[in-house]
C-alpha cells in the first residue's frame, strides 16, 4: 500500500514538472502567441483588450499560477482556431488514439512474444538468419514510411482498404462505442494498426528471443526436459513465463515512444487522433490546442506508466518489496 502511495506521489510530482515545462516551453517560444488570434486590423487598444482577456498582460508568475489553477480544474482553454473548448476537441480525438495505440501494441506484443520464443529454439537456422535482421530492419524503419508503403500497396494499388480517416464520409453513429465497433471503423483501423504493430514488434521479438536463450539454459528447463515434456510445452509453460518479465518492462518503457510515435502514423492515415491534432494545432499556431494535446499525451503516458508499474509489482513481488 505504501508502495502504491509512493508511486502515486511520484507521478503527481512528475505531472507538475511536465506542466511547468509545458508552460515555459509555450511562453518562451519566440513570436507572439496571439499572432494567429489578433488581427492586424485591430488597433493597439483592442489588441491590449484581447491580451487582457487571455491574461497575457500579467507578469509571468501570475500567468503560471492561473494556468496551473485552470488545469487543476480541467480547464484547457479555448482553441484560437476553432473557437471551441480545447477539452471537447481533445475528448473527441482521444478514443481514436487509444484504440489505435492499444490495437497496435497488442498485435505487436502478441506476435513478438510468440515469434521471439519460437526463434529462441531455432538458433543457427535459416529462419533466424532471415527473421532477426528483418526484425531489426522494421525497428530501424521510419513508421510513417512503413505506413506509406502499406498505404500504396493495400489502398492505392489493390484498393482493398480505405486510404485514410477513421470513418467513411457521411457515416453517422448513435454513440462513440457504436462507431468504434462498426465494420467501417475496423476497416479503417487495419492499416494504421498494422503499421504501428509492424514497427513495434521488433523490440518484444528480439527481447523475448534473447531472454529465452538465457532461460533455456536454466536448471528448471533441464529438469523439465528430463521429465520428458515436449519441446513446445517446455518453451511455452516453463521458459516463456520466466522470460516475460523483461518484455513487460520494455512494454512499459515503450509506451512513451508508442504514443509519441503515433503522431506520424496518424498523419499518414489522416487518423483523427491526438497526434494529428497536435500537428495541425502547431501548424496553425493554435497555442491552447497544441498545449492541451501535448498535456493530454503526457498525462496518458504518466498514467499508463503508473498502471504498468503497479501491475509489475503484483507480477513480481520482489519489485515492490525491494523499493519500499
Amino acid at each position: 500500500m505504501s508502495y502504491l502511495l509512493q508511486r502515486l506521489a511520484h507521478s503527481l510530482v512528475l505531472l507538475w514538472a511536465v506542466v511547468t515545462i509545458l508552460f515555459l516551453m509555450f511562453r518562451l517560444m519566440p513570436g507572439n502567441p496571439m499572432a494567429a488570434y489578433i488581427s492586424e486590423a485591430l488597433n493597439d487598444e483592442q489588441q491590449q483588450l484581447i491580451m487582457a482577456q487571455f491574461g497575457l498582460d500579467r507578469p509571468l508568475h501570475e500567468q503560471y499560477l492561473i494556468y496551473v489553477w485552470n488545469l487543476a480544474q480541467g480547464n484547457l482553454g479555448t482553441s484560437f482556431f476553432r473557437r471551441e473548448p480545447v477539452w471537447s476537441i481533445i475528448l473527441s480525438a482521444l478514443p481514436n488514439t487509444l484504440v489505435l495505440t492499444m490495437t497496435g501494441l497488442v498485435l505487436a506484443y502478441a506476435f513478438g512474444i510468440l515469434a521471439g520464443a519460437w526463434l529462441a529454439t531455432k538458433r543457427g537456422t535459416l529462419a533466424e538468419g532471415i527473421l532477426v535482421p528483418m526484425a531489426l530492419a522494421t525497428r530501424a524503419a521510419p513508421e510513417f514510411w512503413l505506413g506509406m508503403i502499406l498505404l500504396t500497396v493495400f489502398a492505392f494499388s489493390l484498393g482493398w482498404l480505405p486510404a485514410g480517416g477513421a470513418n467513411s464520409a457521411g457515416m453517422f453513429f448513435d454513440s462513440d462505442l457504436h462507431r468504434i465497433f462498426s465494420r467501417d471503423f475496423l476497416l479503417h483501423l487495419i492499416l494504421p494498426a498494422v503499421t504501428l504493430a509492424l514497427y513495434l514488434q521488433g523490440l518484444p521479438l528480439l527481447l523475448m528471443r534473447s531472454t529465452m536463450l538465457e532461460v533455456l539454459h536454466d536448471e528448471f528447463v533441464t529438469m523439465a526436459r528430463i521429465k520428458g515434456l515436449s519441446e513446445w510445452r517446455i518453451t511455452l509453460h516453463h521458459a516463456a513465463r520466466n522470460a516475460l518479465l523483461p518484455v513487460v518492462t520494455a512494454f512499459a518503457l515503450g509506451l512513451g515512444a508508442t504514443l509519441g510515435g503515433n503522431v506520424v502514423v496518424e498523419t499518414v492515415f489522416s487518423w483523427p487522433g491526438l497526434g494529428r491534432l497536435l500537428v495541425t494545432a502547431v501548424s496553425q499556431s493554435d497555442y491552447p490546442l497544441a498545449q492541451g494535446a501535448f498535456f493530454v499525451i503526457a498525462v496518458v503516458l504518466i498514467v499508463l506508466n503508473l498502471v504498468v508499474d503497479v501491475l509489475y509489482g503484483l507480477l513480481d513481488p520482489r519489485v515492490s518489496h525491494g523499493r519500499s
Binding site: 511536465v18 515512444a257 509519441g260 501535448f294
Partner: peptide, 17 residues
Amino acid sequence: LALAIPFLPFAIVLAGF
C-alpha cells in the same frame, strides 16, 4: 522527468513553433 516527456511531440512542438 526527461523520460516522462513524450519524445516526438516535444520535438515537433520545438521545431514547429
